[in-house]
Amino acid sequence: MCRWLAYTGHPLQLETVLFNAKHSLIDQSLHSRLGHTTTNGDGFGIGWYGHPTDIPFRYRCIQPAWSDRNLREAARAIRAPMFVAHIRAATDTPSQETNCHPFRHGRWLFAHNGLVRNYPAVRRDLMVAIDADLFPSIEGSTDSEVLFFLALSFGLELAPVTALERMVAFVEATGRKHGVDEPLNMTVCATDGEQIVAVRYSSEGRSRSLFHSTSFRHLLELYPEDPRIKAAGEDAFLVLSEPLADLPGWWQEIPESTAVVARGGEVEHYPFKPQLA
């Protein structure tokens, strides 16, 4: 499907995780170990914040991430305290810039790995439920963008986890109405510049892989000379589709049906229980 990561902490050069890590996101675009597809070459995108209250910046492209020379230059130049990066493997929708993640609305960025099953059959019913004021902001044709705007319609800006639970419940109810037994598979990330909200969930209970970093304070004790950990700071946090390196103690797998919220150095886990609004 796709691979993505999100970071918060001290301002960090994007190339640290996009290019320089042993199993960086760019390496994953060619050699994914845990993804549904080994190669993720149907476009990419990065979104980053200069300041938590700013509208985030984006750079998206339909070229494979490994062959875009401008991405390497941008990743070397950009230092940000929070960012999201995504490499895409397309399913039912074309490779075009408007279909590349992360999607943006106001201060919010959103990235998704997975799919809405039999999306062409349920697409109309899902889109009709999007708030009329938000509908003109939809640019592409992916199920992922529709998930984002449904979550916004259900209150993402006020109560992110609850809104995502309501979005999932609505997608599942709509799919089953159309005879789809297992309508949704997803790992998603939503961020507003102050918090990262990540969810691992699927209707069948076999979600795509998702991990997050363990305590960077603890990692600094384990690997005191590692410059990457020093640069990120003790309160840094990474959530990602698959680990960037094979160092013991770095990564914790996120369980099925779990939401993780990282904010201000605090990381909290919640059971993820879809419920209709």
Rank of each mutant, 00 (worst) to 15 (best):
K273M: 08
S24L: 02
N118Y: 11
Y119I: 07
E139C: 14
A80L: 10
G205S: 13
R217G: 06
E145V: 03
P248T: 10
S215T: 09
G179H: 15
R3S: 04
T214N: 05
A262V: 03
L12K: 00
H218I: 12
L14T: 00
E157A: 15
A236R: 00
S144G: 12
R76I: 02
A132G: 09
V261Y: 05
S67G: 15
G264T: 06
L30D: 01
L12E: 00
P274H: 09
A129P: 03
I254H: 06
V188W: 07
A6K: 04
L109I: 05
R107H: 05
E253A: 13
G249R: 11
G9W: 00
D27E: 08
P160D: 13
G47S: 08
G35R: 00
D181Y: 13
Q63M: 15
F44I: 10
R3L: 01
R123C: 10
I254R: 06
A259Q: 07
H101S: 04
E139N: 11
A74S: 11
R72F: 13
V199P: 02
D192T: 07
N118T: 14
C61G: 04
F19H: 04
G9S: 05
A6F: 01
G155A: 09
L222P: 04
T258C: 14
E268L: 15
V197Q: 12
Y270C: 13
A151Y: 02
K22D: 12
L71N: 02
H105C: 09
E97P: 08
Y223N: 10
M1I: 11
A173Q: 14
V171I: 11
C189H: 03
A232K: 00
N20R: 09
G264Y: 09
E225W: 10
I229T: 01
S137Y: 12
V122R: 05
V17S: 00
